[in-house]
């Protein structure tokens, strides 16, 4: 972008202020552990892109789900790569967000005034796990089917509310077409919406409050 055009645009939409607030904000002297959050964000972005691409061919019904996934991995050019990135990215998301969380705990970065940042972070972690759980069923193979049988049963053993929760998750007594459809809907509509809301709030707070320094030794 030429400087002239940059200025023209800045005069009208004020992008420089936003850019500076995001990328040129002051930060204390930190170490590499502070990149874990950004790394998680980067993987989340990849998940979004590859996930959208997968929906171009994937069909969430019992008679087509498995075949369409096989079609993606064996017939569509680059399909194995897109699916591979999405599948490995899912594990990377969980791993990176947990590591990020551990750093925040160890450095006490969740303390005043950043408690709400922490809460939204916990929300993000839960959303991520929801993604992992619902996404795992979608290929509709044996592994996916039984993992979801077990996963929903785990929810089912909770006292009193377990049974209704299991039924709501499965959309009935058994794992069926209804389950697959609602897991898909949750995976591509509900959770992304939740994730974006929490993420927006989380990032806003990070920028507003700044990040905490590495705790000193003398304290």
């Amino acid at each position: 972008m030429s400087v002239g055009f940059g200025n023209w645009l800045d005069e009208r939409i004020g992008w420089r202020k936003v850019w500076d607030a995001i990328f040129l904000r002051k930060i204390p002297k930190v170490n590499w552990l502070y990149t874990l959050g950004s790394a998680t964000l980067f993987v989340a972005l990849l998940q979004g892109i590859t996930g959208i691409l997968l929906t171009i061919y994937y069909v969430p019904t019992p008679d087509h789900a498995y075949d369409s996934v096989v079609f993606i991995t064996t017939q569509v050019p680059g399909g194995w790569f897109i699916r591979g990135v999405h599948s490995w990215g899912a594990s990377a998301m969980v791993l990176l967000s947990v590591l990020h969380m551990v750093r925040v705990i160890m450095y006490g970065a969740y303390k005043y005034p950043r408690e709400v940042t922490w809460f939204t972070g916990v929300g993000l972690l839960l959303a991520t796990m929801g993604f992992g759980f619902t996404g795992y069923l979608l290929p509709w193979d044996q592994k996916a089917y039984w993992a979801t049988i077990v996963g929903t049963r785990i929810a089912g053993v909770a006292p009193f509310i377990g049974e209704p929760i299991l039924r709501i998750m499965r959309g009935g007594e058994d794992l069926s077409a209804v389950t697959l459809a609602r897991f898909f809907g949750t995976h591509v509509w509900v959770l992304p919406t939740i994730l974006l809301l929490f993420l927006g709030f989380h990032m806003y707070l990070v920028i507003r409050l700044g990040i905490s320094a590495v705790p000193g030794k003398e304290e």
Binding site: I49, L53, Q75, V76, P77, G78, G79, F81, I82, V85
Partner: peptide, 13 residues
């Protein structure tokens, strides 16, 4: 690295 497979993936069929 992401864009090339993505384009191939979309227009492939």
């Amino acid at each position: 690295v992401m864009a090339v497979p993505a384009v191939a993936y979309v227009i492939g069929p």
